[in-house]
Amino acid sequence: MFHIYCPHCAEHREEEEFHPKGQAHIARPMDPEACSDEEWGDYLFFRDNPRGIHHELWVHAVGCRKFFNITRNTVSYEILETYKVGEQPTITAESLSQDKKMTADGVTVADGGLQTEGESDSAVNTSKEAKV
């Protein structure tokens, strides 16, 4: 069982109160009419399946019934942070790989096979652009 921190209730709750709702930060195209079939298909059906850091949408289904985002490691199941919808994650695959480069000066740090090197947070970046 996980204890998941709900940013709306401001406390940790049991996992059974929550439901995962898939990838977070999927921005609806600004002008659907102008989308190519491929762009629209990507928006509707295609999701990332990373090994490592993943940003996900969850809902506190038995509780405040609000949606929020979780940054989760898909290998270790570790939940790194939770944040409200509309906010940006402070922990991303890029920020973690940068931390690792700093600590790795002269020391080899095993990365456990995680896709942190060269990984891009394209989904998060896209939603950032969409906001501007």
């Binding site: 709750r13 038995v62 509780g63 405040c64």
Partner: peptide, 10 residues
């Protein structure tokens, strides 16, 4: 007061 799971119900 909290909303939570009680005996598989809410």
């Amino acid at each position: 007061g909290v909303t939570t799971v009680f005996a598989k119900s809410t």
